[in-house]
Amino acid sequence: MAEPQQDWNTLPDEDFRRIFRDWVDANCPAELRFMRKQRPLFDEVAEWYHALANKGWLAPTWPQAYGGMGLNPAKHMIYVEEWARLGCPRIPDHGIGLTGPLLLQYGTDEQRAYYLPRILSGEHVWCQGYSEPNSGSDLASLKTSAVRDGDEFVVNGQKIWTTLAHCANWILLLVRTRKVEGKRQEGISVLLVDLRTPGVRIRPIPNLREEADFCEVFFDDVPVPAGNLVGEVDQGWTLAKSVLGHERIFLGAPTRPEYALARLETLAEATGKFEDKAFLSRYARHRLDVYDLGSAFERFAKVLRAGGDLEADVSVLKIFNTELYQRITEEMLEIAGEAARFEDDLDAGDTKVDAMNLFLDSRAPAIFGGSNEIQRNILAKAVLRLPG
């Protein structure tokens, strides 16, 4: 049972920051701080998940009536900033950040009453079924079909790059319910699918670090109750976009480059690289870029804090962030040379630096959440008004 809540939005920002930081710092297990694994499995962070749920702090933006904190954008930004600053592990958050908000906005009373408490309890662990082979960033070209058959939809198709599907038991699934000749965004619907249903098959995809963050999910004549449709049939494109509305600003948060720069500094100190003028010049450029990224992030965050909506130019954050992260981790490998083996961290004085782990981790963010090539297209069309 979650603790009684207060109206956090009435507190001054710094008071809320202090209260949140102090509790998290005291209650997040030390062994989970600054984990090597960016997307741990549910079982690996279940203790932290349940601690947040019991405190009533698991779902920051959900209304308090549904078990959330009811944070406005300004307080939510503080929540995210302190979470990252304290090195808290990422929890399997598709239920909290995607399914929950979708049901709060578009679901029925029955759907909210059934699914939301089970997300908070951890009984339902969700993943997101959007991308398909040959249909990743071009999401509207999806082909997974759902055909109505009485009181059910029958689903056939395949999803790919489905994060943590192998430790989830439900999937928020984007399907095509009607073939269209014109605009591809038409004829798409959203279904809530139990992954334990016969006909569902999940195959993990190991990443560069030999971890199974991603999966393929196959659907062969999978029956889904018609009551699991969210919103109106064939109107799912609007729903699909709504749950991704603020994703790019959080993908642009400077926490990854900041952490990587700190690790670079530790490694450079231990190896005497700060005596090398060429390295010092490159390091200064990285540090200035991190400062610039922080300033850019703050500019967009102010829009959210004021209750505004982000425009297409927020795409620049993701590009800047992910490519800076890559440049910093590449610098770490320059210093480490052949010592940067996959299996071993590097000795750096009285600590160790996970140079290769960070380098490999930096490859994926430029792809997920809409690849950087897609983000550049968005900027070209929506901001620079260049012809398509």
Score class of each variant (00 low, 15 high):
D7T: 08
D7L: 03
N9Q: 08
R18A: 12
I19G: 08
F20T: 04
V24T: 06
N27T: 15
A30T: 10
E31H: 15
L32N: 07
R33D: 08
M35Q: 13
Q38E: 14
Q38D: 14
P40L: 06
V45M: 04
Y49N: 11
H50A: 09
H50Q: 14
A51D: 15
N54G: 13
W57G: 02
Q64I: 13
Y66T: 12
G68C: 01
M69C: 11
G70W: 04
H76P: 02
H76L: 15
H76S: 11
Y79H: 14
Y79T: 09
E82L: 01
E82S: 04
R85N: 12
R85K: 12
L86E: 06
C88R: 02
D93A: 11
P101H: 07
L103K: 05
Y106W: 11
G107I: 02
T108R: 03
R112C: 04
Y115H: 14
C127Y: 06
Q128Y: 15
D138E: 14
T144M: 07
T144F: 03
S145I: 08
R148M: 01
R148W: 00
R148A: 06
D149E: 15
E152C: 08
V155E: 03
G157Y: 01
G157I: 01
I160Q: 12
T162P: 09
T162L: 03
A165E: 10
N169Q: 05
R178T: 09
G187K: 04
I188V: 12
L191H: 03
L191G: 00
L191N: 01
L195V: 05
R196M: 10
T197A: 05
I202T: 05
R203S: 13
R203A: 13
R203L: 10
L208W: 12
E211S: 08
C215E: 07
P223T: 00
V224H: 00
P225T: 02
L229Q: 01
D234P: 07
Q235F: 10
G236R: 00
W237E: 09
V243Y: 05
G245P: 01
A253L: 05
T255H: 14
P257Q: 09
P257W: 06
L261S: 00
E265S: 07
T266G: 03
T266W: 04
A270W: 06
T271N: 14
T271R: 14
G272K: 04
F274P: 10
E275L: 13
D276Q: 03
K277Y: 14
K277T: 15
A278V: 14
S281E: 14
R282P: 05
D292N: 15
S295W: 07
A296Q: 13
A296C: 11
E298Y: 11
A301D: 06
R305W: 10
D313A: 10
V314K: 02
K318V: 05
F320H: 09
N321S: 11
E323D: 10
L324C: 06
L324G: 06
Y325F: 15
R327D: 15
I328V: 08
E331M: 11
L333A: 09
E334D: 13
E334N: 12
E334T: 14
A339C: 07
A340H: 10
E343K: 13
D347F: 07
D347H: 11
V353Y: 08
V353W: 08
S362F: 00
P365V: 06
P365A: 10
G369S: 02
S371E: 11
N372D: 13
E373T: 13
E373C: 01
I374C: 10
Q375F: 04
A380G: 14
